[in-house]
Design a protein around this nucleic acid. Structure first.
Lengths: 139, 139
DNA sequence: CACATATCAGACCTACTGAAATCT
DNA sequence: CAGATTTCAGTATGTCTGATATGT
């Protein structure tokens, strides 16, 4: 159980750091994930349902996150052109800018911090990825 | 940033599993941590402040967790015999029983699940421990 | 009509801040 | 009196459940 406990603890430490970086930008990690996910798509937009599926969060949580991002002018909602049931969330210019800034600052403050060699980071990433695969996270 | 993202995600997956195990027992992970910490001490008791320091949580969060555990009859508060300022939280017999049950079930449901060899688990634990040390988690 | 999608209201947990009470 | 320990009230997040509306 040491591995599991360790994962919980390390995540707690890194989440605290991530939050410290994101707070001045008016973001939380949950909302940053949405922004990052959108910025990885070609058109910068995705149905809310897809977002929930990718990030593995409850539909109500997506609604909540998008509400807040929309209030802040980082994304916009628009009806899906073909399917009247679904709503698309689209990155605004400001949203894209903030997402980039956040990613850069996170890299500087968190990614460079680990204190592990490139090799060690690779091993760690590999093991963690295996755990995710084992848990069916990619299926 | 892949390592950090992976850690977040793996923790999310494992926390969900842990919660699923703990919920029928009426516990959350935060409260289980308190129970586990107490069960590792000789006398099954610790000042609230120590608990917060060990688990790295805010004093108000400790008060909250102990409130709930006490309501459920798993721990008892009693005044510190020598220092009138501090309160001790002590495991009850029922608390100790529940802590043991929870630990066994977590081992079965979470520890055996990872799908990593013993060696790999050791490497993973070692790297994560290094990250914690790097972050000053043991100082 | 069954199914999918999104939203809303309600409840819960955790965390933090700042203030207050008690004791050393 | 300064410092330590705990508690409390208030605020903010995020998550889940269950119910509801709308559209396929």
């Amino acid at each position: 159980m040491a591995a599991v406990t360790n994962i919980m603890r390390v995540q707690q430490i890194y989440l605290a750091r991530v939050d410290a970086v994101l707070r001045p930008l008016g973001l939380t990690f949950a909302r940053f994930e949405v922004l990052a996910l959108l910025s990885f798509t070609k058109r910068g937009e995705l149905p809310l349902g897809k977002i929930g599926a990718r990030l593995q969060v409850h539909p109500a949580s997506v609604t909540n996150a998008i509400d807040r991002l929309e209030q802040d002018g980082l994304v916009e909602r628009r009806p899906h052109p073909d399917d009247g049931r679904t709503t698309l969330a689209r990155l605004t210019a400001r949203g894209r800018r903030i997402a980039g800034t956040a990613a850069r600052q996170l890299n500087a403050a968190v990614f460079e911090a680990p204190g592990l060699s490139a090799e060690q980071l690779e091993v760690l990433t590999g093991l963690l990825t295996r755990l995710r695969r084992e848990a069916g996270d990619f299926s």
